[in-house]
Design a protein around this nucleic acid. Structure first.
Lengths: 150, 150
DNA sequence: TTGCAAGTTGGAATCATTCCAACTCATTTC
DNA sequence: GAAATGAGTTGGAATGATTCCAACTTGCAA
């Protein structure tokens, strides 16, 4: 069962939504809370399952809607890997993703500003990039120290 | 209409396939030739249309099969952008992709080895990555010098 | 000449996602 | 305070890329 949002997170939600002329709804609160509760890059289906524990009537379409809304107002990021289901991530700091082939798990990798800078610098003149997506693909020794939730 | 493969390319095809115990077939030759003819990161559907001009009986399933085979034996790379159709790219040199939001076109961006090196270095211990995918997302002034084919 | 294995084919099936029309509910308008 | 408005939600249908599958082809081997 998902805990309700902290004062601070509720405010963040409220602000971001208001900023693009949208409202806080019970569904959006729960979907957002689900994302914050376990930062394991859940799929829509994952979010749906988890959110339903708190709100059994919630529909899948609404989860899609909420997540799209959040992406639109900059509250969360989408993470795509090959053709797999889209995953969602409330970590807004610049970071790359590491996809563990063995487990399918996705880890955030902190991205130092100078790396971003040097990447931007390899673009030929005339190319202006707003976003850069970096994903590593390999294996990690997960078994040891694990900290998917926070 | 697609030209048949050069001696050199046919050999590359033959070698790569043989290496994983597979054969050259007329369908595979044509699909490979289509990829080499216009390096604009075609979708499966694009490849299908172009290849059909030379081989009207070719089926979509076969194009999927051929491309999967090529990826498997390292002849081509897959390029994914968000949830759009998978695109294919016969450029095997390490490179990133730039996706022009306005036109949807994908450009190869050369990737200097030191960038790859520095990216690898940001992985925490215990993470071993085989491949790194980098994609830029933005706008370019394409209208000017254009050179999608080669 | 028969059999086998790899490859191809078309159509059906799958699966994530999007679309849509009906419904809910809070707020505004008269 | 009833009616209208509009954003948001809902379930089911539709879409579209991809995969699956069973039948067919082909070249080669026994």
């Amino acid at each position: 069962m998902i805990q309700s949002l902290s004062e601070h997170d509720r405010e963040k939600l409220q602000d971001s939504l208001a900023h693009s002329g949208q409202k806080v709804t019970p569904q959006r609160e729960i979907v957002f809370a689900v994302l914050l509760a376990k930062r394991d890059h859940p799929t829509v289906e994952d979010v749906f399952q988890r959110a339903r524990e708190s709100m059994p009537g919630l529909s899948l379409a609404t989860v899609y809607n909420c997540l799209e809304t959040f992406v639109g107002c900059g509250l969360v990021r989408q993470v795509n890997h090959e053709r797999e289901s889209t995953r969602y991530c409330p970590n807004l700091a610049p970071h790359a993703h590491f996809r563990d082939e063995a487990t399918g798990h996705v880890h955030d990798i902190e991205l130092p500003p100078e790396i971003i800078q040097s990447l931007r610098s390899i673009l030929p003149p005339g190319f202006n990039s707003e976003t850069i997506e970096i994903s590593f693909h390999g294996r990690s020794q997960e078994s040891a120290q694990r900290s998917t939730s926070n």
